[in-house]
Design a protein around this nucleic acid. Structure first.
Lengths: 351, 351
DNA sequence: TTGTATGCGTTATCAT
DNA sequence: ATGATAACGCATACAA
């Protein structure tokens, strides 16, 4: 017969046809059908103990048979919270951010929070707007690897609180921060390469706006001083860019290539294998992040391993505390671990 | 002069301290500060033309100096829409779903909609709950590769409308659907392998609950009949599972291995390369989806290419139409294209 | 224990 | 063009 919305309980609803907006069946409909007040229905729906079992059952039945679903928006307005966390990342296509996302998603999910995800597509200008926009629809924000300048973030901060910063430190910002000490990772890489006898290394640099790229580059320049001849090769953050930068990296005569992240390292690795450059026999390749692929591709990629999901978990832990009006745990800065695998080997002296 | 939040306009707000919940500065504060009614402020914020330029400026200034941000929740309640789209996927870690996500994100983003993402973690039981839950907080839902049974989805449907189905067809469901004809892809793969002289092939099967896995398997069995000796190897959907299934696949004596998706295919490929099994000289490997990695890993993976982002775009197009109360475009079913690359070659007769 | 009434912050309807 | 004011759907003090 009818397709949808047939109420088999209580009197039919013969009020004027509802205006376009709004819910089909509200708390009042349920209240009417169960012969109680909206307040009681609310209590039942929220499992308040203070309701007579008899009434509770009646309300439940009415709710079910009417197909009543509380409006999350109305609840949000009344409670002053949405049950949503926003997270802004520079690029959803990057496995690193996906892992952070997963970390937040799982942790927040356990606390009944859902994720509002926005991707700034590596556009620093969009970032603050997206962050504000999404924060407005959520109870808090996880700002992941923001590409904006420090001063912009400081300006942005008051409009997006409460929020936590992931993979980026900003001076003069009291927001909880979960970061990674890339310098330490870089030093480990350099020590490893030096030990293998490499003296000419190329760095496939990441997005201009990426602070962690700058960190890695600076640490690299410092670590290389007096040890390596360091070549910077403009690249990016994606597989394809690494693939295409491989030629230029090889042209520098480098015996070791360090990618801004695993994606570009793997892209370059793919290209090298394809054109017959043996890895690690002729050229060594190193990445950053330790995305799942790095472990399962052959040759397995040597990389600076970052606890990606853990970053997400820790971020949520801090945000959750703030949402509970508690003091968030102290900032954490993970020290990444150099994962030596099969893509690095002794320098090829003939190069 | 003052930087932010300095109310240089109108009288100070000296009401009692607001109760914990709610917004700090509301439309009424702005109205008071600008000496107008809330209605006028609302009009200004929404760029309604029918307001005197003079007043508009005053309101704007008041809003800015008070740091006023309209409450998205309240707007949602009043307008009857949230500006959010929910999307549910079985596994956020799978590049295939990430691409669909990106497709939806970009398309919906252009229309001013943000994404509410939920991951069912390949748990069919969680799926319906998550879908309902997230649909409640959004204006519509994209249900991607649902793992639930047809009957459950039919039951679920009325509670999550409007929604669109991606990568799955369900009989008796009038929801707009965007799907892929995997059978056709499977036939292409089989023709390709047969032409290369393969007679023993192994299939690394995907998640039990995956309908597209079943489709691929059935099409494979049909296509193989009388041509190949087909071995089904239990596997999964992730890189690691492919890696670990490689041995079992090789043990079947197959000269060609077809992965449920690119992830497991690449995992298996990695393992083979690692243990010295030459691809494609000794064994051919094929995947499904055509994730970015497949093109940039060496040997480049032969795969059934699915227009992932396009699935997302088409899904949004349909959902957007429904949100506008228009009829959505007709269902689409993409025919995937076999992307022959370097991981397939003539059968090794010695095996 | 249950109901009444008000507030949540905005939009929209109706006067003016 | 602008201002009251009633929804929007729910939660919650407060009253009973």
């Amino acid at each position: 017969m009818g397709e949808v919305g047939e109420a088999a309980v209580g009197a039919a609803d013969d009020r004027a046809p509802q205006r376009g907006r709004g819910q089909t069946v509200t708390i009042r409909d349920v209240a009417k059908a169960a012969g109680v007040s909206p307040a009681t229905v609310s209590r039942v729906m929220n499992n308040q103990e203070s309701v007579a079992p008899e009434l509770a059952r009646r309300v439940q039945q009415a709710a079910v048979s009417l197909g009543y679903r509380p409006s999350a928006i109305a609840q949000g307005l009344a409670r002053g919270r949405t049950g949503l966390v926003a997270i802004t990342v520079p690029d959803l296509g990057n496995p690193m951010f996906q892992s952070v996302l997963r970390g937040v998603s799982r942790a927040a999910g356990r606390d009944g929070y859902r994720l509002l995800v926005t991707d700034s597509h590596e556009l620093p200008l969009e970032e603050p707007l997206l962050a504000q926009e999404s924060r407005l629809r959520a109870d808090g924000l996880v700002l992941c690897s923001p590409r904006s300048h420090d001063r912009e973030l400081v300006e942005l901060a008051p409009t997006i609180e409460p929020f936590v910063l992931v993979n980026r430190h900003v001076d003069g910002l009291e927001a909880p921060t979960v970061s990674v000490d890339y310098s330490s990772g870089v030093r480990a890489v350099c020590a490893h390469l030096a030990w293998l006898g490499h003296t000419r290394v190329a760095f496939l640099s990441g997005p201009r706006a990426s602070v962690s790229n700058r960190q890695r580059m600076e640490a690299l320049e410092e670590s290389a001083r007096g040890r390596f001849e360091l070549h910077i090769v403009e690249c990016g953050s994606m597989l394809e860019e690494g693939y295409e930068a491989a030629d230029r990296a090889l042209a520098t005569g480098a015996t070791a290539v360090i990618g801004y992240n695993d994606l570009v390292a793997l892209g370059a690795l793919g290209k090298m294998t394809e054109i017959g450059v043996a890895v690690p026999d002729q050229v060594s390749v190193v990445g950053f992040d330790d995305i799942p692929f790095s472990r399962y591709i052959s040759p397995r990629l040597t990389t600076v391993s970052v606890p990606q999901e853990e970053l997400g978990r820790e971020a949520w832990q801090r945000l959750a505390a703030m949402l509970r009006k508690e003091d968030p745990p102290a900032d954490v800065c993970f020290t990444p671990r150099l994962e030596v695998r099969d893509s690095t080997g002794p320098a090829d002296v003939r190069r």
